[in-house]
Design a protein around this nucleic acid. Structure first.
Length: 523
DNA sequence: AGTCCTTTAAACAGGT
DNA sequence: TACCTGTTTAAAGGAC
């Protein structure tokens, strides 16, 4: 019953042609190097960091809306946009569909204090929906993937669950674009709900059936993937074209020129792999005091929906370092390739969440460790459980003047690692490898392809993978550095950290398979 | 060139 | 019957 060939695809998605920001596609795998430009790509500091699950927890902790009873709603409150959810639910999960009103017009939440440097009274706060809406306009597609949109909608619901219809409503309300967009988006939403492991139906209680359909909720296990996906948005303070927070305390980061847009679909972002690089570089640039991070964290928490994506502070050209981001992403236990993790394929199953974070370093694809990653595969974990990130700076070359003093010793690196574990941006790291959540198809594997039929075992043989990893490392080396010592150092460090990058360990699955897995998880 | 990923389109089944 | 919901397959296209 395969679908018949679509009559005319040409009229297809507007999205595909113009490389809209929200398109995060491409997961390709290259090593992502953060730089404001290609040219600068090679000029970043090389930092290897490994993060582990614990870090993830901490990371989550940093998001207020996750742990402090601060839900996304509150995040909206800061924008004055969301005051009242259009979809009101009572404690029983009953939905009372209020007439859609634009929350922005009737803010019920207190506006951010004008003098709050973090929240800023800035009407153009990049973190509020109003700004987002204004920026995207009613005619432009929001930069969020459907998964993110769905996630936000659900999170915005008092009971964290919504029927599709209300999800549509939420999206429409907050992103007017869809009001006039082709109807296909609803199909996409449903498609996402069905395929993305991040979403799951709530067992419907007959007694309180809401009628047709089920309530959809976020699978806690994959939630962080969604969160991470959200973090990758174009709406961050320093995005060009976006308002910038006027009051942020002077930090080293401010000395940077705003880098190109870093929304997840941004080429630059992809190149960087986003997160890690951001986090890493960020860490180096930020004052030693975690405070700034915390501040940012606070911000994140307040922002909720609008992930803090800061521009990558780009190392001035000239610094001779390279950043290896894939390591960071992939090292997390969850993202570690099964192969590298002893377990092999057994877990192949859980993985699949569409990743929201797409990742360039798909090393451990979403399919794999995805979000769930239940199987904690990793020896690494045993060795490092505490501050999950190990950042190692590998040799900055003497050659060019380091614009910023980049710590060259492990102590500093360690500190940085710690720092990173506390800083929100860090979350993004995984985007890459693991596939984040995203969307729809997040987990990783999308249905379509033969590839998907391959199992973990089909991925590159361990040997090759390792070779690939090595290649990655080498590739990450300063361009002009063919210094074997350096390479060795990198290798040693990785080894030391028990880090093994895993590449292309993506398990492809058929949609069916995913579904089955999804089912399995449910049961 | 091949692979990955997201989005879009569409067929279909089941429910209301 | 018409519409909605949910699942699944397929393909387009961008990115690496």
């Amino acid at each position: 019953m395969g679908p018949t060939m679509p009559p005319s695809r040409k009229a297809q998605s507007p999205s595909s042609g113009a490389s809209p920001p929200y398109q995060q596609g491409g997961g390709g795998g290259g090593l992502a190097v953060a730089a404001a430009s290609e040219a600068e790509a090679a000029d970043l500091s090389l930092s290897l960091s490994a993060s582990f699950s614990k870090a993830e927890d901490e990371e989550l902790t940093s998001l207020s809306w996750l742990h402090e009873g601060t839900d996304l709603l509150s995040s909206f409150s800061h924008s004055g946009l969301r005051s009242v959810s259009p979809l009101q639910q009572d404690a029983d999960g009953q939905h009372h569909h209020h007439h859609h009103h634009h929350a922005s017009r009737s803010p019920s939440s207190p506006s951010p204090s004008p003098d709050d440097p973090l929240l800023g009274g800035d009407a153009h706060s990049p973190y509020d929906l109003a700004s987002a809406a204004a920026m995207t306009g009613a005619t432009r597609k929001p930069p969020y993937s459907f998964s993110c949109l769905i996630f936000m909608a659900i999170e915005d619901a008092p009971n964290k669950r919504l029927p599709v219809k209300d999800i549509y409503g939420w999206i429409l309300e907050h992103f007017p674009y869809f009001a006039s967009a082709p109807t296909g988006w609803k199909n996409s939403v449903r498609h996402n709900l069905s395929l993305n492991k991040c979403f799951k139906k709530v067992d419907k209680d007959r007694s309180q059936s809401i009628g047709k359909g089920s309530l959809w909720s976020i699978d806690p296990e994959y939630r962080h993937n969604l969160i991470q996906a959200l973090k990758k948005t174009p709406y961050h303070p320093y995005s060009p074209g976006l308002a910038t927070p006027s009051t942020s305390p002077p930090t080293l980061t401010q000395t940077y020129q705003p880098s190109p847009p870093l929304w997840s679909g941004s080429p630059l972002f992809r190149k960087n792999g986003g997160v890690l690089l951001q986090g890493t570089i960020f860490a180096f640039l930020e004052p030693p005091s975690p405070r700034s991070v915390i501040q940012n964290g606070a911000r994140v928490r307040n922002q909720g929906l609008f992930p803090v994506i800061r521009p990558l502070p780009v190392s001035p050209v000239g610094s001779r370092t390279t950043t290896i981001r894939s390591v960071n992403f992939d090292l997390r236990p969850e993202t570690i390739s099964t192969t590298d993790c002893q377990s092999g394929d057994e877990d192949a199953q859980d993985d699949h969440t569409y990743s929201t974070a797409k990742s360039p370093s798909r090393s451990c694809s979403s399919s794999q460790g995805g979000p769930d990653s239940s199987p904690r595969c990793s020896p690494l974990e045993d060795d490092f459980n505490d501050d999950d990130i190990i950042a190692v700076e590998i040799g900055a070359e003497e050659v060019k003047p380091e614009p910023r003093e980049i710590p060259l010793d492990l102590h500093v690196a360690a500190a940085t690692a710690t720092f990173l574990t506390q800083q929100p941006l860090r979350a993004q790291r995984r985007g890459s490898g693991a596939g984040a959540v995203a969307g729809s198809t997040a987990g990783g594997s999308l249905p379509w392809t033969k590839n998907r039929l391959r199992g973990v075992s089909d991925t590159l043989p361990l040997k090759k993978r390792r070779a690939a990893t090595a290649a990655v490392m080498v590739a990450a080396m300063p361009v002009e550095s063919d210094d074997e010592e350096m390479k060795e150092a990198a290798g040693s460090l990785l080894h030391l950290a028990g880090v093994r990058a895993c590449l292309n360990n993506i398990t492809n699955r058929t949609a069916k398979g995913q579904k089955e897995q999804k089912e399995t998880l449910r049961n």
